[in-house]
Write a protein that binds this DNA or RNA. Structure first.
Lengths: 337, 337
DNA sequence: GCTGGCACTCGGCACCGCTGAGTGCCAGCC
DNA sequence: GGCTGGCACTCAGCGGTGCCGAGTGCCAGC
């Protein structure tokens, strides 16, 4: 692939992203000093089109990038755009004063949506090495109780259970024993250990313990990061006109936690920013969108993933820079507190 | 106001809601057997227009209801539509198997959105008579701890605090004292009591206790119902075309918890369903929408509010029926468990 | 007070032709 | 061989025109 053709492709992508209109050969040579005539550019464009990087919406219109074109742009042509001072400031002031884990996630979503002007998705963080700090069983009414697990990362899991006719002191003992057995373990270790706890209990406690342990097993087995928060939905306006065809499927996808988790999940393996463009996306209704995601955490210890969803026609360099910056900052923020 | 004119207004509203198109005099006499000629209907329509109940988008078009017209319809003309058997079944199966309070709210939002085909908003329930069941302080790292309050309604409040250099047994004592002082009290009572707790503590605990009590004060004072969950956003497609002008402001409003709380809050005084139509709405960007809301709870004990937002052109009778039914059901469900 | 008849209005639609942006191709030049 | 200017061609978009039909207001008559 010719240097000049690459330069032309880059110019087409940047122009189209900023103008939202197909770009023609003349506009191209005028706005970027390509040092060749429009005719030459046309020849190159014909080749680029043949190879599938750009396409014409209709004859007598300029060219727009295809998904393949954006892919090449992202992989080889995009120049890293450093964040502006204002953006850096925004990041640090935005997160200051977070009240709890929920609040951190909420602020992160807002921040990301504001920086990128896209729809932001943030997965709740989970520290796989986090250990259980405390297990609490609270009787709410004659029939119901609440099992609560607090982990060293500050995460709280709760589960409502049916628990009838248990004496106060029995509950105290059960609580003490469960705590003694589980505190300091990771979720995975606790999962192994829980069976043993049941065997060691005095028979009087067997009934209630069964229920409590069953709830704990469920809680330990459930992936605690299997939740996401979404924000910046009004930014979907950037998709332009076709509401019914383009925006509706996106809105529907955004309500499906499972879909969003899969979307982010695929990015979480890589430490750096991952970009999925249009059809590269495994989820069909989102194939007219691009997803930019990044894992966050401290060094090799990945906690979760965050990212944005937007039109394929987006400013990849700055979006990628923002996502990367927010991911890094949140990782550090959560580590330091 | 004439009986026939009322019948005509009712016919206009129902036809317009189902067809989305201005309705003319001829269509009116054909579809509803009004026993008069189109000319007569036209005369009545002219009067209705003069009085502000209906309007013409342009000359030579049919009439559409104004906000005032919808208001009259809702107040005097709407016949209560009983829920279908399928809808009733949906309500009870939807809620079965809820795991915790969050899950109840999540399911309620889904249910409401599905039944009404509108955007659903549900405020987290709060039982003012709920009492504190347990207070927990968990040290997460050398510098940070988590204060957790569990209430008898199953609600959990958490707060991250800075807490350095506290010994394990000091924390145990602090925890015990706080629990002894607060368990069994309502949030309001706890607020009064907290000052006293501080005074009774041994001086060694004063430092950490200050921080913990400050967090508790904040948590007790904060309105725990000041959170809402939103769902069914894809139903905004029902607004029809004008995306930029109509849908965007709604999307923006939906991200503002404060706005939503105010929106629901105004309905919470009344026990029955409240309807705000178009300009009746205090929040300007939502003045092209209608809000149908209802408080939920057990009898006189109101816990919170839920409702839907949709275009003024909505099927009020069935929407109101659905909102009322869901509110009643959720109230009972939460009471019984 | 209701009704049929009639003139009037006007949005929507199809049709038309023009314009201009943009292309592909080709012959000629460096 | 690659670049360039020139030229014919295509076609979306736009404004203008004319027609159709839905719907209205008004009026005279029952």
């Amino acid at each position: 692939m010719d240097d000049r053709k690459l330069a032309i492709l880059r110019a087409i992508v940047t122009d189209y992203v900023s103008s939202r209109e197909p770009v023609g050969s003349r506009a191209l040579v005028e706005r970027h000093n390509l040092q060749v005539s429009p005719a030459t550019v046309r020849n190159d464009m014909a080749v680029l089109e043949e190879e599938g990087y750009i396409t014409q919406p209709h004859t007598s219109a300029g060219r727009i990038p295809t998904d393949k074109g954006y892919r090449l742009f992202v992989d080889r042509l995009a120049q890293v755009k450093p964040l502006s001072a204002a953006e850096k400031r925004a990041i640090s002031t935005f997160m200051a004063g977070a009240l709890d884990l929920d609040d951190v996630v909420r602020r992160t979503v807002r921040l990301l949506a504001q920086l990128t002007q896209q729809v932001a998705i943030v997965q709740y963080p989970v520290v796989s090495r986090a250990t259980i700090r405390h297990v609490e069983v609270v009787q709410l009414s004659d029939e119901r109780a609440l099992v609560i697990v607090v982990s060293s990362s500050g995460r709280i899991e709760q589960r409502l259970i049916e628990l009838a006719g248990v004496l106060e002191n029995e509950l105290d003992e059960l609580r003490a024993r469960v705590n003694a057995a589980l505190v300091g373990l990771t979720a995975a270790q606790a999962l192994d250990r829980l069976g043993g706890v049941l065997d060691e209990l005095p028979p009087a406690l067997a009934g209630p313990a069964d229920v409590v342990v069953a709830a704990l097993l469920e809680m330990m087995a459930a992936d605690p990061s299997a939740r996401v928060m979404v924000g910046g939905v009004p930014n979907l306006t950037r998709f332009g006109d076709q509401f019914e065809t383009t925006v509706k499927p996106v809105l529907e996808a955004l309500e499906e936690q499972v879909v969003l988790l899969r979307l982010l999940g695929e990015a979480s393996s890589s430490v750096d920013v991952t970009v999925r463009i249009g059809h590269e996306n495994p989820y069909e209704p989102l194939q007219s969108t691009s997803v930019v995601a990044a894992a966050y955490g401290l060094d090799a210890d990945v906690w979760a993933t965050l990212g944005i969803v937007g039109p394929t026609r987006m400013d990849y360099p700055s979006t990628m820079a923002s996502v990367r910056a927010v991911a890094r900052y949140v990782g550090r923020f959560l580590a330091e507190g």
